[in-house]
Deep mutational scan, measured.
Amino acid sequence: KNAAKIVNEALNQGITLFVSDNKLKYKTNRDSIPSELLEEWKQHKQELIDFLTQLES
């Protein structure tokens, strides 16, 4: 999976991924984040940080 797909899947579940101080963060109104999503974010962390940083610049 690529970073764009992961970010879109998160958005579809009401979760916004973003970068703050070079760290991957998220915002959501959900009570909890599915563990498989958290695991996927960890596996692709640097790719996600790079992707989101490019989007914001």
Rank of each mutant, 00 (worst) to 15 (best):
L38N: 04
Q46N: 07
A3G: 04
D21E: 12
K27F: 10
T28E: 02
R30S: 07
V19N: 02
I33A: 03
K27V: 11
E40P: 02
L17V: 02
A4C: 13
E47T: 06
I33G: 02
N22T: 06
S32W: 10
I15K: 01
F51H: 06
N12G: 11
L11Y: 10
L24F: 03
N2C: 14
G14K: 04
F18S: 06
V19Q: 03
K45G: 08
I33E: 02
L24A: 00
L38Y: 07
T53Y: 06
L37N: 03
P34A: 05
L17A: 01
T28R: 02
Y26I: 06
H44E: 02
V7P: 01
E39P: 02
L52H: 00
K42R: 15
L24C: 03
K25S: 10
T53K: 12
D50S: 08
S32G: 07
K25N: 09
Q46Y: 08
Q13N: 09
L11T: 06
L17S: 01
K23F: 07
S32Q: 09
N22L: 06
F18C: 09
D50T: 10
K27E: 09
S57A: 14
S35R: 11
E56N: 13
A10Q: 01
A10K: 01
E9K: 07
L11W: 10
W41G: 01
K27L: 09
K5Q: 15
F51G: 00
A3L: 07
G14C: 07
N8G: 09
L24D: 01
L24G: 00
N29K: 10
A4S: 09
Y26L: 04
D21L: 04
K45D: 11
S32L: 07
F18H: 06
I6P: 00
N29D: 14
I15L: 03
E40M: 13
I49H: 03
N8M: 15
T16H: 13
L52N: 00
A10D: 01
S35M: 14
N8Y: 14
E9V: 05
N2M: 11
V7R: 03
D50I: 10
F51T: 02
I15S: 01
T16W: 13
L55F: 12
K1R: 12
A10V: 01
E40R: 08
I49C: 04
L52Q: 00
R30P: 02
V7M: 04
L37E: 02
V7I: 13
L52S: 00
G14F: 04
K25V: 10
F51L: 05
L55D: 08
K23I: 12
P34S: 06
K1C: 13
E40I: 13
Y26E: 01
Q46W: 07
N22P: 00
F51D: 00
L11V: 06
T53P: 02
K5S: 13
E47D: 09
S32K: 10
L48R: 00
V19T: 05
D31M: 10
E36W: 09
N12R: 14
N22V: 03
T16M: 11
E9N: 08
L11S: 08
I6G: 00
D31H: 11
I6E: 00
A4K: 10
R30E: 05
N29C: 14
L48E: 00
A4L: 10
W41F: 09
T28I: 03
V19G: 01
E47F: 05
A3W: 05
V19P: 02
V19D: 01
N29Y: 10
D31A: 13
E47A: 12
I15H: 03
Q13K: 10
L11D: 04
P34F: 03
K5M: 15
L24P: 01
K5E: 14
L55S: 12
L52D: 00
T53H: 07
E9G: 04
Q43G: 06
K42N: 14
D21S: 05
F18Y: 15
Q46I: 07
L37I: 06
K45W: 15
A10R: 00
E36V: 09
V19H: 02
I15G: 01
W41K: 00
Q13W: 14
S20D: 15
Q43L: 13
E56C: 10
K23P: 00
K1H: 11
Q54Y: 10
E39Q: 09
D50Y: 10
I15N: 01
Q54T: 09
K23N: 11
D21G: 11
A3C: 11
K25Q: 14
L52K: 00
K1G: 11
R30D: 05
S35L: 14
I15P: 00
I15T: 01
S57K: 14
I15Y: 09
E56V: 13
G14I: 02
L11H: 09
D21F: 05
Y26P: 01
L11K: 09
V7Y: 15
L55R: 13
Y26H: 05
Q43P: 02
E39C: 07
T16K: 10
K25G: 09
N22H: 10
N2F: 08
L11G: 05
K23W: 04
S20W: 09
P34R: 04
E9W: 06
L48W: 00
T16L: 14
E40L: 14
I49K: 04
T53V: 12
S20I: 13
D31C: 09
S20Y: 12
S35V: 14
I6Q: 02
N29P: 05
L52W: 01
L11E: 06
A4D: 05
I15C: 04
A4F: 10
Q43N: 11
Q13R: 09
L24N: 00
N12A: 15
L17P: 01
W41L: 08
Q13A: 12
V7W: 09
E39L: 09
G14D: 05
K45C: 14
G14T: 02
F51S: 01
G14M: 04
E56G: 15
D21V: 04
A3N: 02
G14H: 05
N12H: 12
L48G: 00
D31W: 04
E36G: 09
Q46D: 12
K5I: 12
R30L: 14
N2G: 11
K5C: 13
I15M: 03
S32P: 11
K1Q: 10
P34N: 05
D31I: 12
L24T: 01
K45Q: 15
V19F: 05
E56D: 12
